[in-house]
Design a protein around this nucleic acid. Structure first.
Length: 616
RNA sequence: GGCUCCGUAGCUUAAUGGAUAGAGCAUCUGACUACGGAUCAGAAGGUUAGAGGUUCGAGUCCUCUCGGAGUCACCA
């Protein structure tokens, strides 16, 4: 049993024995003692004052005495203003340190034989991955690692939106203007190649629209429909979608292509397969570089018709209802939502229909009792509705659904817009952070003796470490303003700061090996310094942090934890001598402490998807 | 307008209802006779948007106000 649990259990016993009241162990609050007081852990006494009918200080004194008496680890105590500060014995810390070093999986829970499905990334195939996907992927991947550490069997999936108007735009542009060019012939990364045709399409459509605006038909529409205060420019900006769907030649061609696709036209399908295969090759490359992977891919071209049978089931159960025009609806006004259409009057699916169908299909595939959707917070309402619908359908997994919602990534200039060319590309971004890592490294010259390959591996770890930590250290819910300069910072509260601490521990252990330094006989070390105690307490906290991150689906807890641990280690590094310690026992103890810190840092960062360099 | 989320130092942010709101960046001072200075120590910087309330105790919970974002499609 963990130390704090032992103490909590003992306090519930004490309350029972001393005051005759029962208190559950979860109600007992224990925090690390702030540095300005003496002690290691602090019990908050106030909750027990009423049941004891004594002053806070008296209760604290009684509980403190009880704990010193019954719990070996508790060596002493003091009570200040209703807070019971406990001192943990050196002997207990020695045992603890030994355990951490000899437990490779320290902080991780045993397998619990429960399966969780985690969906993330889920891009469209008309253009390459961008900054928004990066946050999504890093979050999704990190959560998968955290849940794995918490004992779950995690299945990572993505559903690829490989059909629809968007990809048809890229297809059409390539067909009209591509002249048989390929990624290979142009030497362009294949997903970017496809994306370029999407941009080209938008450009051509814009040109067509501008010409059209000068026609008499356009003038007439403007005169008829514009709002009183609305200028021409504003009106036509707003009217663009409608124009595209009614008057545009390119629009008509795209719609025709979509119809051809849906009717299974062979030429269209083969073009579609060609374009998508280019995109997938590019995505694979980006994912690999980012260090994320999937257990199964779903394609919308396979799933977009799913869900209709569930709509029938819902109608039969009376959960849904049909309007006169044949459309099917659900009324969620009793839980504060609106009425929502589930099937169009012509019998075709809407967005939520296929999500309903896909949910069941995936349950059949994996039997997961819990499904996590990593999707931006624009879709909060959609998922609230989806989960409510599945609940009312009585789906067995409906209570295990979670929308891992995250704030959009915006630029200092506002939201990214493809049309305005303000999209930050994922590949470019990774290039950039690695370039900055290289510059910094060359300035320092520490890697001069390492092979080309080894150096590249390190620079990649450092650069991506900076990027990943930057994106994961804040609460996912928060909107993120992406400042390119801060994202590649290598100093302060950053990934490389933590990696550097690890490199320090690694360097020490290297010397232990090469010089056969003894680090086993540390139990005689009794004079544990405050900076050492701080480290021990931080290491002791690690399993709880993993649990909390898993329970809240929030990697930022781990990111902040790792930073604090690294900071404590750096302070320790400066305050005491390790290899040159005052005694053999002190040296052994500090080396053990370094090893424990290094392994927890490595483990914690791995849960963020960040790899540790051996040197940097 | 309804619903949801957000508002903490110049900037980015932390804080299971617990002690004097904790960090990083930027600014200013210091620290290498080296276990790696991508580091450390220190200074300065806060009416936690505002007003009420609940509580022994509120950045955190409740109510209202102000400010910002998202959403409220037979789009995805």
């Amino acid at each position: 049993m963990n130390l704090l649990e032992t103490i909590k259990a003992s306090i519930t016993n004490a309350i029972k024995e001393l005051y005759g009241e029962s208190v559950s162990a979860e109600k007992v609050q224990i925090n690390p003692t702030p540095v300005e007081f003496t002690g290691d852990y602090t019990v908050v006494i106030f909750p027990f004052v009423k049941m004891a009918k004594k002053s806070p200080d008296a209760v604290g004194a009684e509980l403190g005495a009880y704990l010193v008496d019954r719990v070996d680890a508790v060596a002493g105590f003091n009570v200040i203003k209703g807070f019971l500060n406990l001192e943990i014995s050196n002997a207990w810390w020695h045992v603890f340190l030994g355990e951490v070093v000899s437990t490779p999986d320290f902080g991780k829970k045993p397998r619990n034989n429960r399966t969780v499905l985690l969906e993330y990334s889920s891009p469209n195939t008309n253009k390459p991955l961008h900054l928004g996907h990066v946050r999504n992927c890093l979050l999704g991947w990190s959560c998968s690692q955290i849940l794995d550490a918490a004992g779950y069997d995690v299945k990572k999936v993505q559903i690829i939106n490989d059909r629809g108007v968007a990809i048809c735009k890229s297809m059409l542009a390539w067909q009209k203007y591509g002249l048989g060019r390929t990624p290979a012939s142009e030497g362009v990364k294949s997903d970017h190649f496809v994306g370029d045709y999407y941009v080209l399409f938008e450009q051509k459509a814009k040109e067509e629209y501008e010409v059209w605006q000068q026609t008499s038909v356009a003038r007439a529409i403007f005169e008829e429909k514009h709002k009183p205060e609305q200028g021409e420019k504003e009106f036509f900006k707003e009217y663009k979608n409608q124009w595209f769907n009614t008057a545009s030649v390119l629009g008509a061609e795209v719609r025709e292509m979509l119809l051809n696709w849906e009717s299974g036209d062979e030429a269209t399908l083969s073009l579609w397969k060609q374009m998508n295969s280019w995109v997938y090759a590019g995505f694979d490359d980006t994912y690999e570089r980012m260090g994320v992977s999937f257990d199964k891919l779903y394609y919308e071209s396979d799933t977009y018709l799913l869900g209709k049978d569930l709509v029938e089931e819902g109608l039969a159960k009376g959960v849904f209802y049909k309007k006169e025009d044949g459309s099917v609806w659900i009324d969620l006004s009793d839980v504060g939502y609106d009425q929502k259409v589930l099937l169009r009057s012509d019998g075709t699916s809407v967005y939520i229909t296929q999500d309903i169908g896909t949910a069941r299909k995936r349950y059949q595939d994996f039997g997961a009792e819990s499904v996590i959707y990593t999707v931006a917070d624009e879709q909060n309402y959609h998922f609230a509705v989806l989960f409510e619908v599945l609940k009312r359908l009585g789906e067995p997994y409906a209570n295990g659904l979670y929308h891992l919602s995250y704030g959009l990534v915006e630029l200092p200039t506002g939201r990214m817009k493809t049309r305005e060319g303000t999209v930050v590309d994922a590949d470019d971004l990774m290039d950039e952070v690695i370039r900055v890592a290289r510059d910094e490294s060359e300035k320092r010259g520490e890697l001069s003796g390492i092979s080309e390959d080894g150096r590249e591996t390190i620079l990649k770890r450092v650069g991506l470490g900076a990027l990943k930590f930057f994106m994961l250290r804040v609460n996912p819910r928060k909107k993120m303003i992406f400042n390119p300069e801060e994202s590649v910072d290598l100093h302060g509260q950053t990934g490389p700061f933590i990696q550097y601490s690890f490199v320090r521990t690694n360097g020490l252990l290297q010397r232990v090996r090469t010089e056969s330094i003894d680090m086993s006989s540390f139990s005689g070390y009794m004079d544990i310094q405050p900076c050492e105690k701080e480290l021990l307490k931080a290491i002791h906290e690690y399993p709880d942090v993993v649990q909390q991150a898993a329970a809240e689906y929030d990697p930022s807890h781990l990111a902040n934890y790792c930073f604090n641990l690294a900071k404590s280690y750096n302070r320790f590094w400066h305050e005491v001598k390790i290899l040159g310690a005052e005694s053999i026992a002190a040296r052994a103890f500090r080396l053990q402490l370094s090893q424990a810190t290094g392994s927890v840092l490595k483990s914690g960062m791995q849960l963020l998807g960040i790899e540790m360099p051996e040197r940097m």
